[in-house]
Write a protein that binds this DNA or RNA. Structure first.
Lengths: 240, 240
DNA sequence: GCCGTGATCATTGGATACAATTCGACCTTC
DNA sequence: GAAGGTCGAATTGTATCCAATGATCACGGC
């Protein structure tokens, strides 16, 4: 809707625009997992043909945000509890290692700049919490984690992490139970304090614990019986 | 050419066929990095339209095996030395962790089956070396690494590793200097012996050392001056 | 009344046609 | 002779068209 015109990234190709819009809609939980993404529908919305829509959907499928089933169309990815667990396990591994690389490779000025940027993320996060702005919360939280890994200098791993963070948004949107945000900001504050002190090992432990806490706050077991296509299989009572 | 009819993987969709063929051709160093992949040309070869070829190319681009430049076509990916280093760094991290998970989670029968499968890979590798079959060597070596990570049970990380192994083939094809194969089979034998003993820490160390050795056997510095478009950019003066 | 079967409809997969861009060659000009 | 520009062929990007598959719904049988 309005998201289509929000990003004026100069002359952004239209397919990337669509891709970004859908991705953001997924992150913000506006598009629930399982939502069908009709090619003609999207094409009408953006005033383009199905060809370019298909390209965008294909890209999103490569990012594991949508699932394209042959001859059955594209839907927003519906992660299984097992997959959710694997994603968080992968994040623990990747992020703790990248954090160590980051902290080990920084000089004092780089360290100060990192702390400053993380402070900015925390401020954004706090503001979003105060305003009950879920979208901003998710973005600030993701940025915090991304910033932790950025200075490590391994763009290959950073890309993997980006994908995992995106999938985490989807997982949180699907399995979250309470009103609390995607990440407890207190955890981030505690982690930042440790980083300021420069204790690598403790920072790693804190980050891993934080991610474990995030995962445990999800209702994976309940969703295991509720979320899959059981309702579709049984016939009629399909809820949204 | 003949590759179009070689893989009769039952009723494989044609686009996956193309994707597999091109990927294998890249792995086997039949398609050198930088080779242009014309849509019409591939379409003519396989007897399909450009639509399906584009899909296959797009998929390959998502796997970082080809590079699609807007309005300029697709070429086989030409990794930079920095990227090559990052890929191997990522592999060290991923594989050593996955190996630990694998060994920690196996019972005795699972352990025996793992060893058996690794033995098979080693036999294939030896046979390929004896026959000077580069293709089989690369495949056997990749399989060995994949088998090490498989029983860990994290399909998300396993997919990442698959991508990294594929990109490694490309890197090796581009930067390899000697006649030696992609992985020293002696390293694999030594690693397998350690795994049979069940020493997790030592196995991790051996695996990391093996990957470092693989990377060091590449001629990254020489290619840095030879391959990229530095000469085109600067013309003559000071190197980077 | 419930289930199996068949037809209609919507949606996707693939092929073709047209427009836009790029790259190369040839020609002109200094 | 070299540099620059212009034109042309080839290739990619996009839109549209046709075919094929899956879904929905109605009808008939049990």
């Amino acid at each position: 809707m309005s998201a289509a015109t929000r990003h004026d990234t100069a002359e952004t190709p239209i397919d990337q625009q669509i891709r970004r819009d859908i991705a953001e809609a997924i992150y913000e939980q506006r598009m629930a997992p399982g939502t069908r993404l009709s090619e003609t529908g999207l094409g009408d919305i953006y005033g383009v043909s199905r060809t370019v829509v298909r390209k965008a959907l294909f890209h999103l499928a490569a990012d594991k945000l949508v699932d394209i089933r042959p001859n059955r169309g594209a839907v927003v990815w519906q992660p299984s509890p097992a997959e959710a667990h694997e994603v968080f396990a992968a994040r623990r591994l990747l992020e703790s290692t990248l954090l160590a690389d980051t902290l080990a490779g920084l000089d004092s000025t780089g360290h100060a700049r990192l702390v400053e940027r993380l402070q900015t993320c925390l401020n954004d996060d706090r503001a979003a919490h105060a305003a009950h702005d879920r979208q901003a919360m998710i973005r600030a939280s993701g940025d915090f984690h991304r910033r932790l890994a950025e200075p490590a200098g391994n763009s290959v791993l950073l890309e993997f992490l980006d994908e995992l963070i995106g999938r985490s948004s989807l997982i949180i949107a699907l399995f979250e139970t309470r009103e609390a945000g995607p990440c407890a900001e207190a955890d981030h504050e505690r982690l930042l304090a440790i980083i300021e002190r420069g204790d690598i090992g403790e920072a790693q432990a804190e980050l891993a614990a934080h991610l474990e806490d995030c995962e445990e706050r999800l209702n994976l077991s309940a969703a295991e019986t509720a979320s899959p296509s059981l309702s579709d299989l049984l016939g009629r009572t399909r809820r949204a």
